[in-house]
Write a protein that binds this DNA or RNA. Structure first.
Length: 448
DNA sequence: CTGGGGAGGGGGCCC
DNA sequence: CGGGCCCCCTCCCCA
């Protein structure tokens, strides 16, 4: 007979104990603030703590202390409250931080809830935007009238500079009505900052934004994306984990832009095209664009927004079978696979000369493959050239059983383990495997 | 220390 | 709408 309330009471009791600091054997230090908790509860809730505590489990007499600097105490409070109550206090303000922290702590339940939260918010926003679309004037000008704070450098370089006006109250009112929820909140935060700084800093000479960014160590979105990927590679399998630091980076970026008046003199802030340069006539109005809720980037197509969002959510749906590295896009995976694991470039790695099947060989180093011309190969002086290399290493060669060594390894290894390539496993094979179709064949089954 | 190249990542846009 | 291509950028490694 099952008493359903038992679990609830148990959790409630544990939460009470936590609040009264009873039997707490773990101190969590988050940016100077100490949280008390129970080791076994944390162990059961978080992959991160599971790992941490299992390492330090030998010394159980001393309370364990964990220190975090990658998220705020408020964020951790939300997560800890969830752990002890099952209630996750998500808001538009904290969802990104909570998601990143959950990712860091390997708490997939929270992660999924955050994703759903974001997704549903997006749906709401899209519906609202569609409504707004029907109300707003259409335009044929494809040039974004309000390049976002977060713009590609190419765009920034190529866009002619124009003088735009500060958004007036009316346009802001439209904005408030058109968007709601957290995305509106996030954006409005930037808008407010921007409007404030725009007035105070108008007229400041525009220096090199990129230079200044670099100076401050705030190098554009690409950087935090890179950061995420690096983390993903370094740490836990690079699943959907996003670097907690990227949140602050996003903020810093927005703040930096606002602070430094990036393009402010020239562009109105693009919040779904509400801010329109007064000097433009109606024909110049831009097409409606889809706005990212996390940054100020806008795109023309919903699909592009979806793609763009991956750089915020850290989602990497395309894992490489060979090395486990994950990618945000199929094409990136394909490029990676062909270049790294298929020796797709017909160039000798040493002398950089063009090689063909006749003039060179494929060299295997761990899971990496590259080509060497016969001359460089002779200089390299390899002594072992296994005959059955195909069967042993190539993910495309053993078409009979359809299971490559890599594929099998991929199954066996966890994501964490597959991140590192096998070092210095140097073998040479004859060139006969450069069939792109086969590559696709092998890669595609992995893809969603 | 520096420049070049490889690899990875993101945006725009066409099919 | 997804896939794919092209372009550009940054980071990192290596000579």
């Amino acid at each position: 007979m099952e008493i359903s309330s038992h679990q609830f009471h148990l959790l409630e009791q544990l939460n009470e104990q936590r609040k009264q600091d009873l039997f707490c054997d773990c101190n969590i230090l988050v940016e100077g603030k100490v949280f008390k908790a129970h080791r076994n509860v944390l162990f059961a809730s978080s992959g991160y703590f599971k790992m941490l505590l299992s390492q330090s489990s030998k010394e159980t007499s001393q309370p364990t202390t964990a220190t975090f600097e990658v998220f705020s105490p408020e964020t951790f409070m939300v997560i800890l409250d969830f752990v002890y109550s099952g209630i996750l206090s998500l808001t538009g303000q904290n969802v990104i931080e909570v998601m990143s922290a959950a990712s860091y702590l390997q708490m997939t339940d929270i992660l999924n809830v955050c994703k759903t939260f974001i997704k549903s918010s997006l749906d709401i926003n899209e519906k609202e935007k569609d409504h707004y679309l029907s109300l707003s004037a259409k335009s044929t000008n494809s040039e974004p009238a309000h390049p976002s704070l977060y713009r590609s450098r190419r765009k920034a370089k190529s866009n002619p500079r124009r003088s735009y006006s500060v958004p007036d109250e009316k346009t802001n009112a439209v904005n408030e009505n058109s968007w709601s929820g957290y995305s509106s909140y996030l954006s409005s935060q930037v808008i407010l900052q921007r409007a404030e700084t725009q007035l105070s800093k108008r007229g400041r000479k525009q220096g090199s934004t990129r230079k200044r960014r670099k100076h401050l160590g705030l190098t554009q979105t690409r950087d935090f994306a890179q950061c995420k990927s690096n983390k993903a590679e370094r740490a836990s399998g690079g699943c959907s984990a996003s670097d907690p630091s990227h949140i602050s980076r996003v903020r810093e970026e927005a703040e930096f832009d606002a602070e430094n008046d990036v393009d402010h003199d020239d562009y109105g802030y693009n919040h779904e095209s509400e801010v329109i340069p007064k000097s433009w006539n109606e024909d110049d109005l831009p097409r409606m664009r889809f706005k990212c809720p996390f940054c100020t980037h806008t795109v023309k197509r919903r699909a592009d927004l979806k793609r763009h969002l991956r750089c915020h959510t850290g989602e990497r749906p395309y894992p490489c079978e060979a090395c486990g590295k994950r990618f945000t896009r199929l094409e990136h995976l394909r490029n990676h696979f062909q270049t790294i694991h298929q020796a797709g470039k017909l160039i000798c790695r040493k002398c950089k000369r063009h090689v063909t099947d006749l003039t060179g060989c494929v060299v295997q180093q761990g899971t990496r493959r590259y080509r060497l011309c016969h001359k460089c190969l002779a200089e390299a002086n390899f002594d072992s050239i296994p005959d059955d290399l195909d069967a042993e290493h190539s993910p495309v060669s053993s078409t009979g059983n359809k299971r490559s060594k890599w594929a099998l390894e991929e199954e066996q290894k966890s994501d964490e383990e597959t991140m590192e390539e096998e070092p210095y496993n140097l073998v040479v094979r004859h060139v006969n495997d450069d069939i792109p179709d086969e590559v696709d064949e092998k890669v595609k089954p992995n893809l969603r």
